[in-house]
C-alpha cells in the first residue's frame, strides 16, 4: 500500500473561470492534507487566480455551458443563449459561492493563502506573464516564482502532473 502512495503532485491551472480554478485549488489543498507535496503552476487565464486585483472577481462561465441549471444543480436546464444575459455570470457565481461557503470552501484569495500556509507552492507561467505584461507587483504575495515551462518540469521531477 505505502509503495503505491502518491508522494508529489504538480497541478497546472490553465482556466480563469470559477469552475476552472477551484478544482486545481481543491486538489492541491487536498494533497497537502494527505501529506502529499503539492505545487500549482498557473498559466494563461488561470493566472487570474493569483493576481491580487482580480482573484476574488473570478466567475462561473455561463456562456457555452450546457450543464447549467437553475435555480440549483437539479433545477431546469438553462437554455445556453440565456447564459449570455448581462449579470447571469455574476448571479450564478453568487449562488454557488453561497453553497461553497456553507461547505467551508474559502474564496480564492483565502484558499491560495491556505494552500501556501500548508506548504503548497504557487508558481506563475513566464510566457503568460510576458504576454499579459504583468509585473511581480500584480501577484498575490503567496506567488513563489515565475517559471519557464522547463523550470516547471524540473521542479515536477517525481510528481504526478495534473492538468486542469
Amino acid at each position: 500500500m505505502s509503495e503505491g502512495k502518491i508522494k508529489k503532485v504538480s497541478i497546472v491551472c490553465s482556466k480563469g473561470s470559477l469552475e476552472g480554478v477551484y478544482p486545481a485549488l481543491i486538489m492541491a489543498n487536498g494533497a497537502r492534507m494527505e501529506g502529499i507535496e503539492a505545487s500549482i503552476f498557473f498559466t494563461f487565464f488561470g493566472l487570474y487566480a493569483i493576481l491580487k486585483k482580480y482573484q476574488d472577481e473570478i466567475k462561473i462561465a455561463t456562456v457555452g455551458n450546457p450543464a447549467m441549471r437553475v435555480p440549483d444543480a437539479k433545477g431546469m436546464a438553462l437554455p445556453t443563449w440565456m447564459g449570455a444575459i448581462p449579470g447571469m455570470s455574476a448571479f450564478a457565481t453568487n449562488m454557488m459561492m453561497k453553497e461553497m461557503e456553507a461547505l467551508d470552501i474559502p474564496p480564492i484569495g483565502e484558499f491560495i493563502e491556505m494552500i501556501h500556509d500548508a506548504g503548497g507552492k504557487i508558481y506563475a507561467c513566464k510566457a503568460t506573464v510576458d504576454m499579459f505584461h504583468l509585473t511581480l507587483d500584480d501577484f498575490c504575495p503567496q506567488m513563489e516564482k515565475v517559471l519557464t515551462v522547463g523550470e516547471f518540469y524540473d521542479l515536477s521531477a517525481g510528481a504526478e502532473i495534473i492538468f486542469t
Binding site: R32, M33, E34, G35, D117, A118, G119
Partner: peptide, 11 residues
C-alpha cells in the same frame, strides 16, 4: 494553518 501543518506534519 501553518501551525497546524508544522505541529502535525504529514496529514
Amino acid at each position: 494553518t501553518k501551525d497546524l501543518y508544522d505541529l502535525f506534519p504529514g496529514g
